[in-house]
Design a protein around this nucleic acid. Structure first.
Lengths: 203, 203
DNA sequence: CTGACTTTGTACTGACCAGTACAGAAAGTT
DNA sequence: AACTTTCTGTACTGGTCAGTACAAAGTCAG
């Protein structure tokens, strides 16, 4: 599993797989947050020594950003799928069910990494927090645009504002993350989503 | 402001006001979370030395619990007010608007202390996290009971489940906290609440 | 004034933090 | 074989963490 891969041919070959090590780092950051994760936590989970980590990834902050890229690529793909849905209701459905899968899937940390990081970041890692918030803003804009389109298509009641609706849906997703983090079961979260979709507007 | 008060008459008198010091400690814990707060942060804000803190409050964990008591007493009184409202809709209204006041009031940390603490608690302070989650569970039960009563009174549509509705409302509150923490303005949160109340069920 | 009692500030404890210097080891190149 | 390049583990840096030992200082009862 944790074996090399690579192309360079000079010098002593690396004895671990960068991708595997990064996946392990992601798991730790996701579970403990940026500040809550120590280099010892990371090296233990990645199965490499401190200098190897620095040589391969730069430093703790650079490693975190790479882990965040991986997280978005592998765990947040449901967001793109949701935005492609034909109706505003289906967008909400895919978002909410996707969030549940992301947040209570077996053998993975409970909660959304973005929420955990942005809430649990101290002032000494301000730039990390800003990075995470900034990435989230892009998603919010895309969702607002999607609901604006839905409204033009007569897919949403006229009295509802796309941005307000975006904020309500995002709040539900964040709530799902927080409740999962606090120990809510998949059944309880599905109950939440089921009720949320019952009160969700129909065209 | 930070002056003594007290009753005991033996020994050297305490030179600071316990209540004022506790209020300062609350502010720091609220802003930085339990793990993110150092004893130096606390003593600086409280204007006392380390041994004075230990003598008056026990240790960091005991001080946090006392700060949490103060927080519930002073900042979460809107929850009791909300539960007393005559209709389920008014319960939701008071809860949502109360949350906004709690979460973006001038000169205070942005976000709900309960959410911040439960999300930002590392494994070494597990008991703190459990305490916060446990206190939250009591509120959730009360809210579910209130919606059950509302349903009996014909105050909620028959197809909606009280517990699911409770989870949706709690999710909105948690989302408000997270978004405030990420820098959302009062106007944006009022926009969220306004839209949320538009889709909230009517009897 | 003396002694009991409590709070005060200074200065420390051992443990952990992120990051790194350095020497040895493993490969390719010549 | 010798040399270069890169990765490896050990062991360290200075800084911060929560918590405390200790002696000086302030207030009471007698």
């Amino acid at each position: 599993m944790n074996k090399p891969e690579h192309l360079p041919t000079r010098g002593r070959p690396r004895e671990f797989c960068v991708d595997y090590a990064l996946a392990q780092a992601l798991r730790v950051f996701w579970e403990k947050g940026y500040d809550g994760t120590s280099l010892t936590d990371l090296t233990d989970a990645m199965g490499i020594t401190r200098p190897s980590l620095y040589a391969a990834f730069g430093n703790k902050e650079a490693l975190f950003r790479k882990a965040l890229d991986l997280y978005e690529r592998e765990k947040l793909d449901y967001i793109g799928k949701a935005l492609e849905q034909p109706t505003a209701r289906k967008v909400a459905e895919v978002m909410l069910h996707g969030a549940i899968d992301n947040v209570v899937s077996a053998g993975e940390p409970h909660g959304c990494m973005g929420v955990i990081t942005s809430v649990a970041c101290g002032p000494e890692s301000q730039s990390i927090r800003e990075e995470v918030v900034k990435r989230g803003e892009a998603g919010k804009r895309a969702l607002t645009a999607r609901f604006e389109r839905a409204k033009e298509e007569g897919d949403l009641p006229a009295h509802l504002d796309p941005e307000g609706l975006m904020r309500v849906l995002i709040a539900m997703l964040q709530g799902i993350s927080v409740q999962a983090n606090q120990g809510a079961t998949r059944e309880e979260l599905e109950h939440l989503v089921e009720t949320g979709l019952m009160i969700w507007p129909t065209a």
